[in-house]
Nucleic acid binder design. Structure first.
Lengths: 209, 209, 209, 209
DNA sequence: GCCTAACCGAGACGGTACGTCACGTCTTTTA
DNA sequence: TAAAAGACGTGACGTACCGTCTCGGTTAGGC
């Protein structure tokens, strides 16, 4: 299940002493504890994590190939589950997804935690790729599906690319929740944004006076 | 002019040998060369920069207090100048700013350079603050001013907060240009986005059937 | 028989699965193989020995308490048996013992093996003591007995301590065979040394002119 | 002067900050202190030495390529200077050299120190070679020279190889002083040994009755 | 034309962390 | 109960940077 678990694949029954789940837990909880104590991400060394978790360095390297892989797993674990979509209309589905992003922004902010870890990832192309593949792309695929269905039901214009529309519909909330820690995310924001932007993306623009 | 130039303030004429501008240039150009050669940001150590620039470590520490301060200066230097706004209409001004972001996205991508440096900054609150104050906020103030004037001229609805509208108008392009290196930024994208989103933000929403 | 076999003493018949002799053999032969392959003694780790022998580490620790104890047993096993002494005269007995040392020097050298292991032992006082007690002292006692009998038969002077004479008679060959891997040990060396040194240790030194 | 000083050879004036002699002293004295405190040689790690000396590991690796090279230098430094030879006769010169070996044995024993370090060296062929070249061989050359001159002056027989005679003359004291920590080395031992062994190596063996 | 202060490259300094390896112990399954 | 396998905490390995500190030497004013 873990992205970065590096145990070599093997057939047959496991041989030797199995890896302790307690160790796994001690490590991840150690990292979270350090972050919550306000330790800057840059000061999270493997040695310090091991010391905090009461664990040998080797126990960490046995599971992850480095600091970054470990962080990916921790972010993945903290990632909220994708919500059930109502499916009643394009507007309702869009609101549901926007609301998820908004919630995520609130959570991320309140627990200092993930914001920096995610930012940090961009410094390592390899890791960013892992994060994109495992977290971002699935979310994006779901968004595309919703928009495509909106086009089919005639709720959405067809003369703008799905990908561009995706950024127009979900980009504003993303920017607000992820890139601007000082902006507020009031209740009702999802509805407000959805209504306004979908209004500009209706299939036929009636003439105005 | 440099944010991080740490020469102690001093009265009277400079004494002793003045700092060599050639050294300054060698350092910044060394960093750019390394980045362009595809060296990951995480592998840019002060020692390596000094070696590449043919410069002593002390010469760097004399000018910046650390790696991060150096990076801030480099990003600032590479930041494009804000364009002149036509001022003919809300739509034209918005298109001009969106076009600037689009151009910046194209440039950043082609020169590998800044994308990661900016991401990196988030890991250092101090630096992110500096970047926000010096780069992001001025740009945002200009955007707000445009939108406010749009409200005054009746081109924009007044029942949505300026700040939210700002994200709705400029957020999509920002996401596309800064956060998604694989998305394309075709010509005409600025116009397309501006027209669609402004359509949803017109002051009066006529009833639909 | 093994010095370092650490099975706890126990009454009654052995219980549970008995230790496999094949494992014992695999371990000792693995060590010898590694040494003969030119692996430096310092690179002989328990882990590597176990890997080479196809054996678990625990199987080694069950039998010896550590690397050094294992080495003692291996050296002991390789030690040549003490020869029969002719007993016809002091000179003949001395030659026989010197010849044994010479042979041992030749053997040790050809099989790389033991020279370094013995040297290594000196770093562990405990082991050196074991080696001294089990290998060196018995040999020394036999040498002393011969010399003492030489004094009784009037073949050896009595005004020099047995211990000093022992070093004078056997020391040269020992130095040559054990401490100087590059010296040659030609046939007849034992006789040559014995004659010369015994000449200086005759009971009465007649006055010279 | 140090065997293992690994500074790359260089022309012209020294560049950069020169290496501190104080550091050199702190390291060697740290090692001696640890040994004198009874720390087993096997527990002397570079990290511990650095900690004891209040020095960074790099400062050690800058001077020696490893633990063993460091030890060679320490033994060399503790090695007594070769004595002036009287030159009055073969017997007097031999006594002088034997006395040196005896003294060395006494010292080595009293200061626990060097005995084990020297033994340790044999485990590393490379180091033993260094020790042999720098310490043993010079001493041996001096011994050979004395014996050769003894042959020329008619004090020594010529029908035994110099090398074999060397072991016969100096081997006993060497064995006693280096290989047998429990043997005593009384004053006068050098004279006693010299007289006895030289008696057996006189050029003409007069007939006996 | 000196003096002197600050610069310059080089590199040593005490530290900290890296990722690997071996230690001796412990915990699995299999025989 | 022993067997192989392999995870466990510990700690040393040798390397790379950190940011500071000497070195000898250079480069500008101000005298």
């Amino acid at each position: 299940m873990s992205v970065a678990d590096s145990r070599p694949p093997q057939d047959g029954p496991a041989r030797g002493r199995p890896r302790s789940e307690a160790v796994e837990r001690a490590i991840t909880e150690g990292v979270l504890k350090l972050l919550e104590d306000g330790v800057p991400l840059a000061e999270l060394s493997i040695e310090r994590i091991a010391r905090t978790a009461g664990v040998g360095k080797a126990a960490i390297y046995r599971r992850w190939s480095g600091k970054e892989e470990l962080f990916v797993d921790i972010v993945r674990a903290a990632e909220p589950q994708s919500p059930e979509l109502p499916g009643t209309s394009l507007r309702d589905d869009v609101v549901a997804l926007l609301e998820q992003v908004r919630q995520r922004g609130l959570m991320t902010r309140s627990s200092v935690l993930l914001h920096n870890v995610i930012a940090q990832m961009k410094t390592s192309p390899k890791l960013w790729e892992a994060y994109r593949t495992n977290v971002i792309e699935p979310r994006r695929r779901k968004q595309h599906a919703i928009l495509r269905r909106g086009q089919e039901t005639g709720e959405l214009r067809t003369d703008v690319g799905i990908d561009v529309m995706n950024d127009m519909v979900f980009g504003p909330m993303l920017v607000r929740a992820v890139m601007r820690p000082d902006a507020d995310l009031p209740e009702g924001l999802a509805e407000q944004m959805a209504d306004a932007v979908l209004d500009g993306l209706r299939p036929v623009s009636p003439p105005r006076t």
